[in-house]
């Protein structure tokens, strides 16, 4: 369900960009999606396919999803590690004092227009 809300938001943003730039059709939109953004790429594609039919601007638009790997930082040993594999616990020193550096993004990176 969350994916549908996000898709509506993307299409709204695209409509704004289109209005500002005098664009009538968008062929492709490229999205950067963090690994721990809680948005599931397959669902996102399905929702986009459903929602795009309602708007002439994006009815023929393809959605390309680029995954942004999630990386955490350990405050105690200063090392970075992959978040999905180790979550909150640093694999080097087993500290819990860690935080996410990147990987929760949802960014509209670029669009292609005819």
């Amino acid at each position: 369900m969350h994916e549908l809300g996000v898709v509506f938001k993307v299409i709204d943003n695209l409509k704004e960009v289109a209005a500002e730039n005098g664009i009538e059709k968008i062929d492709k939109v490229k999205i950067g999606l963090g690994e721990v953004s809680t948005v599931i790429p397959e669902y996102l594609q399905d929702c986009f396919k459903w929602a795009k039919r309602k708007s002439p601007l994006v009815e023929d638009c393809d959605l390309e999803i680029e995954t942004i790997p999630a990386v955490s930082y350990c405050e105690d040993c200063g090392k970075e590690y992959p978040t999905v594999e180790f979550a909150k616990i640093c694999p080097s020193c087993h500290s819990e004092h860690t935080y996410l550096l990147r990987g929760n993004e949802f960014v509209i990176k670029e669009i292609e227009v005819p």
């Binding site: 938001k9 993307v10 943003n13 993004e105 949802f106 990176k109 670029e110 227009v113 005819p114």
Partner: peptide
Amino acid sequence: MRIIELNESITDSND
């Protein structure tokens, strides 16, 4: 064909 770079986070406008 033309590519327009946006790099716009979808939560930006909501924020």
